[in-house]
Design a protein around this nucleic acid. Structure first.
Lengths: 355, 355
DNA sequence: GTTTAGCACTCGAAGGGCGAGAGTGCTAAA
DNA sequence: TTTAGCACTCTCGCCCTTCGAGTGCTAAAC
């Protein structure tokens, strides 16, 4: 990437700011007027011509103002953006809200999505914490009807999975409970491999049940994120680039398409990384449907144990600074909560968040 | 409501059909031409004038065609609509899909929302089955970290609730399990009142835990529907009445506003009822945000045990026939699944659905 | 060499005018 | 009671013009 002069960087930054603010192509005179620049519009025009040459800006048509290209945004995000933190009072307020409802993981996730959407004024996406490798904590079998049995699987880290089994023949609750206790004793803390290694010892009901358990744990491992919580869809529809009906529909299809979001959440290697936060601009060439979108992604959780993803989805001209700082803050906050509440781990971020 | 002549009813029906099809005001000549009517356009015009007088049709402006009013739709839905069933092959296909995944309630709900959205070509809403009065089936306590304990509550009917408790002092898993077993033994099958009546016998850990259990069960009772599953949002944005950006935004706000949907799901008494299905047209005067919407609602489940809601949301000119028949069919199908899988109940609808 | 004033040129957005077409209500005849 | 005929109305789409913001280029100023 070409090296820019300080003045060129400055002008690129101003253009991007102004375009984010107004959603209109930015002209040289307008820029000089609005920011009281000490240089003339002709100079700005010359610099803009250079930036256009470099592919960082473009003109929608001759004799229009300039608009940042994807490259321009990338340059801005990776080299020019100033990492600002959320104001102290805001952080305190948000922390407070989370610590109010520390008893329900689902509520954290919902709240995180809501806060993220509000702060970034875009759409947000949050997945619940999900074990990287499922380890069994507890197994419960509950008779419902005839051969139908409700199996409740609690994983280390608190994830609860349930499914309905159909046994070959009815079994009394008494026997089910005994089997569940035996299996819990035997396999507590084990992952799929650990369990598989010792299934040969089992027989009868125990063997049947453990086969279901293994199947479910494999499913749990292969899932990257079960549910994806969304919020702020309306924010994004309010943006002028999505007001046309066709664009709006396409936008919503993206947000409704769970598999895409899951792919997204699964994505770990990305082109631009800012302090653990990944910024995906315009689909980065590979995701065609995401052309008009930018995505700021972060992850949270206890590394190696359970992690989740959170992110902001907005138009290319979204407010990257705000999105990044909010994602970063929430990522730390949720990591604290997970570590503190679900695992017996030291708190990594607490000091940073609350001080 | 005024009594209409057969011909007037016929014309009203045609106008509504045509308007649903084209989303354009319907003119007299167009109607005659399209349906090969044996009466002249002048006659149709006269009848239309009468229907307009009655408030069933209206003109967007003088010298435009006619559009149904809310009253017109209501008349149509309550008195003119022909209840058609889904084609046999469709029903079979759908049933098959459901019986494929009988092991996971969440998946039923998700599938129901998807099918409903596809069949009705509008947005759909489905809530999971929720006990009308929570009765305890099973209690489990799992130590996580220090004083933190994960409480898993299984209700009769299979609903699982989890929350994180903070005890006064750390307690070993051994003791927690014993307490959980004791309490399960003692209170199995009981509702909140039943449990409350005998709490005085308890002390120590058991007393603390049961207080949490009661609190959670009260919460369960007060919730009408926990999660609301949506699908088909894009269908609705494709409709011409929601293409403008302002309308689209408002539409999405409705669908994003969970509380409104929950209110809706809670609503049991409605003005127009068709075979157990409730049709809410244009907010029925009381819900202002719903002015441009119609909603077809049904419920399912095992009465007195656990019920859920499912519905279709679309523009006023949605295809009521299709929506109603799909809701009715799925309502029966889900009721079967719930009764068959979650409760030991005879199957009420099975014959109807699969024959 | 860099910056800036001046200027001709370009192009989209906004507004006005116009004709076409669909639809109505009314009247009078069938 | 129904229908043909007719004058009238109103929207929609189209074209045209104007307006103004913005550009690139050139030559002068710093």
């Amino acid at each position: 990437m070409v090296e820019l002069s300080e003045r060129q960087k400055f002008i690129l930054t101003l253009v991007i700011h102004e375009y984010i603010r107004t959603a209109q192509p930015v002209g040289s005179q307008a820029l000089v007027a609005r920011y009281n620049l000490t240089i003339s519009s002709a100079t700005v025009r010359n610099e803009m011509a250079v930036l256009t040459e470099y592919g960082l800006l473009r003109q929608p048509h001759t004799s229009a103002g300039r608009v940042p290209t994807e490259e321009g945004y990338r340059y801005f995000v990776s080299r020019l953006i100033r990492a600002t933190d959320l104001p102290d009072t805001t952080r305190r307020t948000i922390s407070h809200q989370f610590y109010q409802m520390r008893h329900d993981v689902e509520q954290w996730v919902r709240l995180a999505a809501s806060v993220l959407a509000h702060q970034s004024r875009a759409a947000s996406l949050v997945t619940p914490p999900h074990p990287e490798k499922a380890r069994l904590k507890h197994l419960e079998l509950i008779a419902t009807r005839g051969r139908q049995v409700l199996m409740v699987l609690v994983m280390v880290g608190g994830e609860v999975r349930q499914r309905i089994l159909t046994l070959n023949e009815p079994v009394a609750q008494e026997l089910l409970s005994q089997s569940a206790d035996r299996l819990t004793q035997l396999f507590q803390g084990q992952d799929v491999e650990g369990i598989r290694a010792r299934t040969s010892q089992l027989s009868g009901l125990d063997a049947d049940v453990i086969a279901w358990v293994i199947e479910d744990m494999i499913e749990a491992n292969s899932e990257v994120a079960g549910e994806v919580y969304l919020d702020g869809l309306t924010n994004v529809l309010a943006e002028p680039e999505f007001t046309g009906s066709e664009e709006a529909r396409r936008a919503l299809r993206i947000l409704e398409e769970r598999s895409l979001l899951q792919d997204l959440a699964a994505r770990t290697v990305m082109s631009n990384t800012v302090g653990g936060i990944q910024v995906l601009i315009g689909g980065e060439g590979t995701w065609d449907e995401l052309r008009p979108w930018s995505i700021v992604l972060g992850s949270y959780g206890a590394p190696g144990l359970a992690t989740g993803t959170l992110g902001v989805l907005g138009p290319l001209r979204m407010s990257y600074g705000r999105a990044i700082s909010t994602v970063r803050f929430l990522s730390g906050l949720l990591s604290d909560l997970v570590a503190e509440t679900l695992f017996d781990e030291p708190l990594n971020y607490k000091g940073e968040n609350l001080s």
